[in-house]
Amino acid sequence: MKTPKNTETRTWPGAIPLESLYTAGLGGQVFFKALKERGEIVGTRCASCKQVYVPARVFCERCFAELSEQVTVRPQGTLVSFTFSNFNRDAQPLARPQALALVRLDEASTVLLHYLLKVTDPTQVSIGAQVKMVIKPKAKRTGSILDIEGFVLA
């Protein structure tokens, strides 16, 4: 961080000196283990609320039931929305637009945010399109949401 050159106005740089070690949690352990080891997408079902949560969760937000019924869902779904972002997080222009997708997997009640791959222009895409998930090869998987590369149009 640079200190401004104006010496009349007293300012100085500072920071909140923190880092975090996030835990996947009880639900996340199930989801990431299945993704890393088997390349599968696992959710949990609340039978009474008729919801399938993906990634797997340990409780139902609607009724608070503990969710023990795991469901492996197919890695395909419907495009709920998309965009092409032309700027990065620091407001700098990107060399190539970044395509993003909101996808409802066919057997899930929930919607996932991820990258939309192999498209360069909004005219190539339409909401409601069928998409397929691309999962990295096993050797490259670490147990992260980035073990999923993104979605491609089916």
Partner: peptide, 27 residues
């Protein structure tokens, strides 16, 4: 120290425990 649960899951465990002890449900 170092709970396996996420913060959200910790909150749920306590909240569910309180509801259960009252014999009540979230609705």
């Amino acid at each position: 120290r170092r709970a396996l649960e996420t913060p959200k899951e910790l909150a749920w465990l306590a909240a569910k425990g309180a509801l259960d002890s009252a014999g009540m449900t979230l609705d």
